[in-house]
Amino acid sequence: MLRHVSNNRGLLVLAAVVLACFLWMTSQVREPGGASLLERGVNALAYPFVKGTDSTSKSFRGVWEGYFYLFGLSAENDRLREENGRLYMENIRLREAARKAGRLDALSQLGTEYGFRVRPASVVGRDASSWFKSVLIDAGESDGVARNMPAATYTGVVGKVRETFGSSARVTLLTDPGSAVSALDERSRDAGILVGDGSSLCRLQYIEKHADVRPGDLVLASGLDGLIPKGMPLGEVVKTNRAASGYFQEVYVRPTADLEHIEELSIILR
């Protein structure tokens, strides 16, 4: 089909023109009542010829005055548009900076709240494949980051440092198939291992069928693995299945941190 389209370039150009016209018309609908710059220009150019057929030299001078007036308005309009665009971009940049400052402030609170030394870092890249869940951060060995250090945001644990480089490191997220964290249910205190399965959810393994684990329960780090400090939030139970074969029930947990949209995190240096 693509080859068919490429062979009909005329049709393609026509479609582009029609589309451009539709966009142009749409923009006019959104700003009703005002003449476009093109309309002003055409009218300004045509006006002297129309007026010249039945007017005196006085009115001819008025045409020129009108023309220069419109020309000045057009220049003023262009300048204001440019100014408006610049202010708009600056506003967006400042809003984004304010958001980032808010997130970094919340991350620094994480250290104060739990009494850890933390190193805030930004996510600069994601896992190249869809099979694993990891992120590349802009802090590494030179910043004191080491393998197996926990990574967290102000909403909960994100994962652990898998490997470090000079000034960057790769953090394995909780949802990675290779991730395993010692965890417990906050309400029932049943302990298990929180593992990732490559999807957006994790599974809390080794929870016996009679254990009172319910959807909505908060899952915390148990601290038994000696890596993630006890009590840090990991996720929330979203589904349980006691009908599964074997001794254990299936418990699905959604991480409290938004792992799909994570932009900054803190490495807990301890």
Binding site: A128, S129, G178
Partner: peptide, 8 residues
């Protein structure tokens, strides 16, 4: 290259 850029 993929291995290096992936956490697997």
């Amino acid at each position: 290259v993929m291995d290096c850029l992936s956490g697997g």
